[in-house]
């Protein structure tokens, strides 16, 4: 039976982010937390294939207890099982430590219930790093296909998957043996409106909480701050560039404003470029 595991992360909805003008710090209060959008689409793809192949979907997430809402949301979207890996000692993890924990957890799940497909989001919108997926693939020695925009076929007899991968220049159609790890773009699947019974199931669902006490034994040096080679050394707000001159058409004429711009361009040595690129 088909088994997919999807890694989901909870992120602040960055479209709603506010910065405290005095401290320059992020105001987390009142910023809604959402499931990382790419992960949601990855999950939708997993559920689509689970329905087609009559299988199961497990979601995993590493984070604080508040991430249970995201796991419940995953159940609402059709996942069958949700595991939250949550422990104080895991906090402060960078992508390397995160990929270690997720890889160990996936190994444990795999031993008990073999996995065919691992789905990750293309990137998490809070950090935009896009590193955790490939990192987990390397640790598990699994083939990785990033920027997946579609799954064309899954063959459980042959153990292969055919994936569409979009790069800047073209789309590649890639065949990869299973188990494989994909990191997904939003195009991978549409997010459907969950049926009411699934919502009700999710509201009653209690996610499994795994800690460093078990069931997986983590190496202390590999997790949390200790397992993270990178540290944030400084934080600041972006520097303000120097503003140029502004002319208001309501105070002069439009033609005068245009002339002014051309004068400035000439002074900056880019007039030739403006006039069609001649040198």
């Amino acid at each position: 039976m088909f088994h997919a595991v999807v890694a989901v992360k909870q992120v602040p909805d960055t479209t709603n982010i506010r910065i405290d003008p005095d401290t320059g710090n992020l105001v987390r209060e009142g910023v809604p937390a959402i499931m990382n959008p790419y992960d949601a689409h990855a999950l939708a793809a997993a559920v689509e294939w689970k329905r087609r192949l009559n299988g199961r979907v497990t979601v995993i997430s590493m984070g604080p207890p508040s991430f249970t809402t995201t796991i419940r949301e995953a159940i609402e979207m059709g996942a069958d099982r949700g595991i939250l890996i949550s422990d104080r000692k895991l906090a402060g993890a960078d992508t390397l430590a995160t990929s270690y924990v997720l890889a160990e957890v996936i190994r444990a799940i795999h031993n008990e219930d073999p996995i065919d497909l691992l789905l990750f989001g293309k990137q998490a919108i809070d950090g935009d790093t896009a590193q955790v997926g490939p990192g987990v693939g390397v640790r598990l020695d699994m083939p990785v296909v990033t920027y997946a925009v579609g799954i064309r076929a899954i063959d459980l007899d042959d153990d292969t998957v055919v994936v569409e991968r979009r790069t800047e220049r073209w789309t590649e159609i890639i065949e990869t043996p299973l188990p494989a790890l994909l990191t997904c773009e939003k195009d991978i699947a549409e997010i459907p409106f969950a049926p009411l019974p699934d919502l009700i199931k999710s509201l009653r669902y209690e996610p499994e909480i795994w800690t460093i006490e078990g069931p997986v034994a983590f190496e202390q040096d590999m997790i949390g701050v200790r397992g993270s080679p990178t540290i944030v050394y400084q934080m600041g707000t972006p520097p303000l560039p120097e503003a140029g001159e502004v002319i208001n058409t309501r105070e002069t004429s439009i033609d005068a404003a245009v002339t002014f711009v051309f004068q400035k361009a000439e002074a900056a040595g880019v007039l030739g470029t403006i006039l069609g690129g001649e040198k």
Partner: peptide
């Protein structure tokens, strides 16, 4: 991006993106 995360993990080192 596809490559960097994999290389960093294989070398067990830190990577700062973008």
């Amino acid at each position: 991006r596809d490559l960097a995360g994999a290389v960093a993990t294989a070398l067990r080192t830190g990577l700062t993106a973008d």
